[in-house]
Nucleic acid binder design. Structure first.
Lengths: 228, 228
DNA sequence: TGTTCATGATAGCAATACTATTATTGAAAA
DNA sequence: TTTTCAATAATAGTATTGCTATCATGAACA
């Protein structure tokens, strides 16, 4: 996997670019691990500082508060998925095949070889599955949307919507179905693990094949009139 | 609308049953309004007490903390939807018609005539749309699930799954699709209002017809082979 | 060599999340 | 009627959280 890919994110998300310094990278690394361990509600900058052997004040120099840090991590994740989709669908013409690859990538992004040493992609995936929706279910969603904090997610969604439109030009809900694919992928992984009666798929030891199968079933039953 | 319907909820959700006293009902009423106004993160028992002209300590006698209060409200909402679905599908045999009614009820539950004076159903609906997923995206989800806090939602989901199975006995994901319907209904209302590029439907002044149309389109395209 | 700038160390303050104690009230029970 | 009892109000208090300010240190760099 390429070393040196740089995930570029909206500058308003942080006070100082955490990717550009050793301390910033430590913040990213340990915040992922700590949120995964204790959950976003119990997580705070004091605990993070202790864990990474730094100080609360130093963390505040990078992120305004823990909400922005979570949003940063979530954006990072979607940007990473977006990058993987681009790489994996490069030179693939057939839209059906493209959508298959998109779904596969979406579900298995966390198992790709680590690209960046300070981000444990598979732990980050767990964090996004468990806490990701809190990044946009906030009172200030409109202000934050206005300044572009959700652009990554919207662009990724638009990219997938384009493929859906290619596949079935008459399908009336391409954007909705694109975002539903993302939401379903994460939701059903969470359900399988914690509320299994809300789904029909099983997940064990990071094996998400059944989720992938389900998403493909939904996609091709909705979009392809004659395909199994 | 019937007066005196009683929403019955898991007793572990509260310290003292809020439906049984005037103060408890005031807590329900004002917490819905206040969470809607300032969002769940900014909401706390001190502000609630001031708003309802009572004291913090009194609120704590009903709910252990604000998480349990939110969970209570969410459970209340799903129990209310469940009740409406039962009433509306009573004596309807055709499973296709039943599913149509379920989807309609799901989307327009908030517009039913108020049944209980201390609950503003349409504000509660906004709260569930905006904050509902925080009720189960928590570190203690497994413990809370074990003691039955999510039973309402799971039973409702099971109820809908049954109809899906009647409609298409070979459909392999009835539970997943049932919960997806609930999640989509709320998500796309939220998207339409705050992140419109993530959906294709429009919502204005509490008119959710386009959401309803979309859910029906998904449902019948997935489940009925010949109903375009 | 002096300046700049990131970080560490420490302190502090206002708000939050609760708990405890006592007083009051209003309704049920005797 | 009086007693008693439970629910609530009033008040206070503690530990933690969320965040800011200040100053010292030490590396980079001009």
């Amino acid at each position: 996997m390429a070393i040196g890919i740089k995930i570029s994110l909206n500058e308003g998300l942080f006070q100082r670019d955490p990717q550009s310094t050793a301390l910033g990278q430590k913040i990213i690394k340990h915040s992922i691990l700590l949120i995964d361990e204790i959950g976003f509600e119990a997580f705070n900058f004091k605990k993070l500082a202790v864990r990474m052997q730094s100080t609360e004040a130093s963390v505040y120099r990078y992120f305004e508060n823990k909400h922005f840090l979570l949003l940063y991590l979530v954006c990072w994740y979607w940007e990473w998925v977006s990058y993987l989709i681009d790489v994996n669908t490069m030179n693939i013409e057939d839209p059906k095949r493209r959508l298959e690859i998109i779904i596969h990538t979406l579900v298995s992004a966390s198992q790709e070889n680590p690209a960046i040493e300070y981000v444990n992609e598979s732990v980050l995936h767990r964090v996004v599955v468990a806490e990701g929706s809190k990044a946009y279910h906030i009172k200030d969603v409109d202000e934050e949307n206005k300044v572009g904090f959700f652009l990554n997610y919207k662009q990724l969604s638009a990219k997938v919507a384009t493929v859906i439109e290619e596949l079935d030009a008459n399908f009336p809900y391409p954007h909705a179905f694109a975002s539903t694919l993302f939401e379903m992928a994460n939701n059903h992984i969470y359900f399988a693990e914690h509320l299994p009666r809300l789904t029909d798929v099983k997940v064990q030891q990071g094996n998400f094949e059944e989720v992938e199968g389900m998403l493909k079933y939904f996609a091709f039953r909705l979009l392809c009139k004659n395909s199994g």
